[in-house]
Design a protein around this nucleic acid. Structure first.
Lengths: 252, 252
DNA sequence: ATAGAAATGATTATATTTGATCGAAAATGA
DNA sequence: TCATTTTCGATCAAATATAATCATTTCTAT
């Protein structure tokens, strides 16, 4: 068994075990502890795991192109549910806006068979997701690359969106409340969302229940701007009631 | 069994096995280990697998952005030379256009330390290449996604380029001759190149020697539009002379 | 058919990798 | 705090893989 192969094995073991001791790994692979130590050193230099005294721990998930940053990894299951549900609102032949949030991204796997479809987006992970899909046409919004969010932002991007029209827009938000409507962390992202809202017939807000009833710092759109909220079933009844009172339609 | 056939077989084996040792492959194909080693070296240069001490591993699934189509794999070494040379023309603080050709792409590794830098491009592989580079600012041209070329094309993309200005443009071509100037296969790509030429102070054409003296079907720019040609040292003297006669500067 | 080119295989010298040993450093428990 | 135990890092020797060189075979074009 070669060097690289062993590295893979170690990582695979760690994937299940969360953390392991040197001797434990050595026994599992039938190889001397000193060699395992060398491997661990290299792997930790590559930041594929965390070296500890006597062993190693699983590395915090790295973000390649398609992955999202750490903060996004909360409530993954909930987001996936939302993505699946939101995808049912899309029909073959639609033209849709999709913004760069991680919740919106979870729609992608469910969209692949709703063809033909035209997607206008500023999100690079979304572009990557449809790279191999024949009948989905992608229009990528141009502008400044935001490396952290893996998306395109800026004034030019807003202009770009304004020159298009779509039947439906799927957007995210960092907070949603009956009182303050849609709120966001980031000014630039909010600008994109606003532009999409303005250019779409129907606007669907994808927002998991943990964000509902909470406000982020920037108000960027009133509740009346959105056609419906798509969320998960764990939305507390009191929150649901408050939103319905404002005549907001809710899918969950 | 020919050389190409063997390569295919090796890749097929690896597809199932995840990783194999040299001797293992040699036995499976009934061929000497030394030859397998040579094959593996070539295959790893083409990035179709990962060479390890004692064997090889399946190539990691390429990110949908970084991979180029197969036809690009010809003349890899030549292209890399050109990329390295062209990168020396870039200075810290520059704003540059880069088009979506594979030759232009080879500049990327050499640009990572020329900072700060501002790159305006329609190429997704280039965007991916600089995703993790702090001091390189990327402006992605917006428009229709061309999945095959992993680039953005279309009328909107041309408009986008026209609204910017850059000190230098680095572009490719499918053919170059003293008689017909720059030629291309694809109408849409030619449109992008033309727009970049029009909005840059200096235009550098990156073109490997196999394409020089040949014409593709669409003439898209005269020789006088380009500041200099960057090519490899294998350019035949007769071709070089013909181009120099037209007052074209050549780096090789 | 034959010369030249390319691919393959064998051999040897060089590189890497592996495992062992031992002194130094770090963790553990009183 | 100190002593004990464990782990770590460096150096060395053995095993193994590789690169380089050359001879042989196979293919190609005339």
């Amino acid at each position: 068994m070669g060097f690289q192969e062993r590295k893979r094995q170690i990582l695979k073991l760690l994937d299940k075990q969360e953390s392991m001791e040197v001797q434990e790994i050595a026994d599992a692979l039938g190889i001397s502890a000193i060699t395992i130590r060398r491997d661990l050193q290299q792997l930790s230099e590559e930041e594929l795991l965390i070296r500890t005294h006597g062993g190693a721990m699983k590395a915090p998930p790295k973000s390649p192109f398609t992955a999202f940053a750490d903060k996004e990894n909360v409530a993954v299951a909930r987001k996936k549910q939302i993505g699946k549900l939101a995808a049912t609102l899309v029909k073959p032949g639609d033209t849709i806006f999709m913004d760069c949030g991680s919740t919106v991204f979870t729609m992608c796997p469910h969209l692949k068979h709703i063809t033909p479809l035209r997607i206008i987006t500023n999100s690079l992970p979304i572009v990557a997701a449809f790279m191999e899909v024949e009948d989905i046409h992608v229009n990528l919004i141009g502008g400044e690359l935001d490396k952290q969010r893996k998306a395109i932002h800026g004034e030019r991007a807003v202009k770009h969106i304004e020159s298009y029209h779509a039947a439906k827009a799927f957007i995210g938000a960092d907070g949603l409340s009956a009182r303050n409507g849609l709120t966001a962390f980031s000014e630039t992202e909010a600008g994109i969302s606003r532009a999409m809202i303005a250019s779409a017939n129907a606007v669907y807000l994808l927002c998991d229940s943990t964000k509902i009833g909470k406000d982020s710092y920037l108000k960027f759109a009133p509740l009346s701007d959105i056609t419906a909220l798509v969320t998960d079933p764990e939305l507390p009844a009191t929150q649901a009631a408050a939103l319905k009172k404002k005549e907001l339609k809710i899918y969950s």
